[in-house]
């Protein structure tokens, strides 16, 4: 009897407590103080959605950025992972949210420039759906060979044409595109073996299951440093600062600049002052020591261009890749 009584009191107190928490504000669409006034931006937390799983490079970039932005804006910037379709799910979701500055998404260039070459029209995401705020960084791809393959440079690879197996990080990725175009331009014949992501592809090339693979620099560097794989060339437009001795594809005469870029975006139609404030906070975040050393540790090259420049750059790249695949009759979707 007393137990039940106590339980009832406890339950009632809990209920009262719960109701008072109503003042805290929820996160349901329309539940937040959806005010007309952007006078007091930011009025609540700013959610940064990432279209990749936690722990990957895109996610880490988002968290590093969110940390800095949170300090500048004075509100919390929680990072929410919403993996799916290389970021398409997250981007579409955020694009559909109200454009009041409380929802942001971290974009991967490959989603815009490369994925459309491999999937159907209605799944492709366009930059028209979002407002790009600022470019963040560049992550280069590097073509590495296993130690056992004996390849030291591109000529060795060319000599082995016809017998080469190359690993990619998946269908519709920069890794696949870069290698397909390079091989077509250099006249190298090989079999493409897709893996699920950079990690298994790298493991495969370290173990000589495939002879070469194109991996993001941040993932491949420890293996390069340990001597487990040999870097053949990098796919950046200019020599990468972390691999000064490795030639670029462009230097070797092949016009295949492929890099992964990240940028911050918001739903389309953001009010100008909110946009300006957000860009300001990004600038503050990337200037901090914590962020710059983060870039260094992860071998990311800062690429902090304005939102308009990002749109220009990525649109140009998308067109270029379209032309390249058409010219060499490459189909990423096989």
């Amino acid at each position: 009897m007393r137990l039940a009584h106590r339980r009832a009191v406890a339950g009632a107190t809990a209920a009262v407590a719960a109701l008072t928490l109503a003042a805290c504000g929820g996160n349901v669409a329309g539940g937040t103080g959806g005010t007309e006034a952007s006078s007091e931006f930011p009025s609540g937390p700013v959610t940064l959605t990432v279209g990749q799983d936690a722990g990957g490079s895109t996610d880490l970039i988002a968290r590093a950025l969110a940390d800095g932005m949170s300090g500048d804006l004075g509100v919390s910037v929680p990072v929410v992972n919403r993996a799916g379709a290389n970021g398409a799910v997250a981007t579409q979701e955020v694009a559909g949210k109200p454009a009041d500055g409380s929802n942001l998404v971290l974009l991967n260039a490959s989603l815009i420039t490369i994925t459309p070459l491999a999937v159907s029209e209605d799944e492709a995401v366009s930059l028209d759906d979002v407002d790009v705020l600022k470019g963040l960084s560049q992550d280069d791809y590097v073509l590495v060979a296993s130690k056992k393959s004996g390849f030291e440079d591109l000529d060795d690879l060319r000599a082995a044409s016809g017998e080469v197996t190359y690993g990619t990080t998946g269908v519709g990725t920069g890794s696949q595109l870069a290698q397909a175009v390079l091989f077509a331009q250099a006249g190298i014949e090989g079999t493409s073996v897709p893996f699920d992501s950079g990690s298994p592809a790298l493991t495969a090339v370290v173990g000589d299951q495939v002879q070469v693979a194109t991996i993001q620099l941040g993932e491949a560097k420890p293996q390069i440093d340990a001597g487990n794989v040999v870097p053949l060339l990098a796919f950046s437009a200019e020599r990468n600062q972390f691999l000064p001795d490795v030639p670029t594809a462009v230097e070797e005469g092949y016009d295949v600049p492929v890099s992964q870029y990240r940028a911050l975006a918001a739903p389309k139609g953001l009010p100008e002052d909110v946009k300006a404030r957000l860009v300001e906070s990004v600038d503050a975040a990337v200037a901090e020591d914590a962020y710059t050393s983060f870039n260094e540790n992860n071998l990311l090259t800062p690429h902090e261009i304005s939102g308009e420049e990002v749109v220009e750059e990525w649109t140009a790249l998308a067109e270029k890749y379209q032309d390249l695949t058409a010219e060499y009759d490459i189909s990423l979707a096989e």
Binding site: R7, A8, A10, G11, A14, A15, A17, A18, L19, L21, A22, C24, G25, G26, N27, V28, G31, T47, P78, V80
Partner: peptide, 27 residues
């Protein structure tokens, strides 16, 4: 009623307050 209220409060405390997950919540 008692157990239901208690359950919802507990869920709120665990998933929203303690863990800070992104579950849609009104309060």
């Amino acid at each position: 009623v008692v157990c239901s209220l208690g359950a919802v409060v507990a869920l709120y405390l665990v998933f929203v307050a303690a863990l800070g997950t992104n579950v849609p919540h009104l309060f």
